[in-house]
Amino acid sequence: MGLEDLPHNFLTGQLEDLVKWARKSSMWPATFGLACCAIEMMSSGAADFDLARFGMEVFRNSPRQADLMIVAGRVSQKMAPVLRQVYDQMMEPKWVIAMGVCASTGGMFNNYAVVQGVDQIVPVDVYAPGCPPTPETLMHAILTLHEKVRTGEITRRRGVEPAVVFDAAPWVPEVPSAVRVSRPS
């Protein structure tokens, strides 16, 4: 990093910047591939697009080790509780990218089986459009999220007032009842 050229081997700065830099540079996504978008997510990790350039290639299979959930694909009513459970298992701080229109809004599948937007179940940070988004779009989404982490506040999570992260009681967002809809026959 060129630090050896400095006359003294220490730097001063804000702790906040350092934490944000660390969070941004070592963000580990959870594998949450659902449908078509999962294939493009895998393509992004493979040779041609190489997510490793952004420190993102370590797809963790356990949600406990992941910071970022990329919801890649349509979320069915049957999958919704599972998705929520995986999200709950992830450690704070955690982020969510809704990859593709199906995850963002339900897309062309405006019907009984698909959750109309994953933001009904989990809070979403970045929406990536496309059906499926190309690896470039996913990368743009990831870089947007990096920028958000870099410029955001470290102690405040979305929707929490006042900003308390190390509170004993974990913050549980309100899950709308539409998670599992029983429709009249």
Binding site: S76, Q77, K78, V82, F109, N111, Y112, A113, V114
Partner: peptide
């Protein structure tokens, strides 16, 4: 199975 049930057969009718 069914965790990716998208209702495509119903959607096709629309």
């Amino acid at each position: 199975i069914g965790y990716l049930h998208t209702g495509m057969e119903k959607q096709a009718e629309a």
